[in-house]
Design a protein around this nucleic acid. Sequence first.
DNA 1: CTGAAAGCGCTTACAG
DNA 2: CTGAAAGCGCTTACAG
Lengths: 347, 347
Amino acid sequence: MTQTAQGSAVTLRDVAREAGVSVATASRALSPGVRNVRASARDRIMAAADKLGYRPNLTAQATSKGTTRTIAVVVSDIEHPYYSAIAQGVIEGAGPAGLIVTIAGSGYGAEDDLAVVRALRGLSPQMIILTGGGHGASASQDKLTEELRLYEARGGRVVAVGQDDLPFDTVVLGHRSGAAQLAELLAERGYTHPLLLGPATESTNAAEWERGFIEAAKASGIDIRDSDIHRSPITRDGAHALISRLARHGLRDADLIVAASDVMAIGAMTALRESGMEPGEHIGLAGFGNVVGAEDVTPELTTVELNLAAAGAAAVQLGLEAGTRRLRHINAEPILRESTPPRLFAH
Amino acid sequence: MTQTAQGSAVTLRDVAREAGVSVATASRALSPGVRNVRASARDRIMAAADKLGYRPNLTAQATSKGTTRTIAVVVSDIEHPYYSAIAQGVIEGAGPAGLIVTIAGSGYGAEDDLAVVRALRGLSPQMIILTGGGHGASASQDKLTEELRLYEARGGRVVAVGQDDLPFDTVVLGHRSGAAQLAELLAERGYTHPLLLGPATESTNAAEWERGFIEAAKASGIDIRDSDIHRSPITRDGAHALISRLARHGLRDADLIVAASDVMAIGAMTALRESGMEPGEHIGLAGFGNVVGAEDVTPELTTVELNLAAAGAAAVQLGLEAGTRRLRHINAEPILRESTPPRLFAH
DNA sequence: CTGAAAGCGCTTACAG
DNA sequence: CTGAAAGCGCTTACAG
């Protein structure tokens, strides 16, 4: 393939020539929001652009303007519905503003986010939305913050979705309040011995979820000990393996498993059944997030609706307005379904 | 925010000055695969870049080189696990080559793909991977092809994942052969009256799936009439609504529902149960794709493994090698599970 | 309202 | 191996 292929691209210069104006005026006529071009000239230019099939070179615009009409969203795992739901919200929010959204997958560690943000910065998006959910304090986290600050200094906007452990605009999700409400309702239904199933990786989202649940449980008279808290990879298979193992040794007196995500809860559900226990009947089961699929398992899964799409859209709004370090809260609400029926001897 | 913020960015010029060389040498030292720089100079330049926290401006590189070290994958719906699985495969395939992958969501029509590709072209990715699954012949489809040809003419690579109805390199998925194998196995299990549940939107993937199933069924002595084929939106809710309606009027003599995707099958499963029929027991149920969740519903869902991640990785490989209009086939394999138990009076 | 010119940050023949 | 210069496609003061 020769470099000549390059030559076939229609450029602004071509449009200008066709319309009989300078590239400067052609540029003005074609950029939205610029008024100072005579109507007749504008029309000729538009027509020429159309006729030639002109498509502006966005990267050239970017090197000239220093930014691109693009939103980059960083997710830990594109296959996890938690992230796709947020991404979908971002897309919906970006559409009206005429912004293209671009999704980049990282991984579950702060260093993963860091690597992706480094690469992304070079692409000069107008906004970077982080959805990783927080990694706690660490050297990588500090470097990530520093990298993002540099990006901001160049005029970029950064917004986080999750918890407020990054010093930027943040859409705060209801991991804590949602988990607390869930704990209260489950206590009312008569559950007394919950077992918590959290992620093995550091996650501020999960930490808030855990704290919210434990505190509210305590207020309802339920004490959750450290030995009641288990951790596995934040996937269907991770939870499945853990619960299978636990079930083999007996689940002691637990009457409820509460997972940090629906995906994990669903893996646990299958593991329970394979171990001869009927979820809902022998032991209650609750998830978190109200992800697609939660109401299609049997029994239907009790969970907490996080309103992820709304959060994604809100992140775009925050990023579009000027401001710093603002927090925007999105409410969560528990949804009780068949997997946590009222216990017989409710107090 | 003033434009001066821009000034704080570290540029190649800064690195060159720090190292005491020209920008040209600095550029050479920093670009991988370029040998002609004295080792000592290279070391000084690397050190300077490191010290200053230099991050190359990828958009500037792009306007200079005409391309970006980026792969753009176009998906119809990021929330659909079919697409996230392919995207995950692309990410895995792109990593070793040092390419960033960017995911853009479109919609289910050819005109949606067209709009996204237009926007994407401006970002000059090195490769565009289309996963839409084919839209059949139409004016939009022709325009899409034309747009992609222009992109190719500028040196870009395009690869499709799905069926071979686009005149570009294609990773062909086993919709047809997978569906055919499934039909044979289900016939062996004694099913005689399948009802097909396909997507309402035009899709070559689905058309192949349908043809594969019908032909193989016929070979096994099962005749599928037009009235046995139903269509709904390609979502959980779409299938749920359709099957609910059908169940109300009675499902006639159908002993099996075969859906074009697992997500649809899972929606159908819930609808059946809500209508008082036990999936697997009263009526068999099969999906397609072996998506996360398929083995976590009750009964576990019979489906066809499409090896989507492998397909995504294969697409990257195709795009990295030179060549045109090559077809690469990825095998599909049926997975029989509890949702299609052997019928009592199998022939 | 318009054009000539300088500039965005980088790459790459070209000539040493 | 290295530097000065031209160029990538666009934008935007500046001066009419």
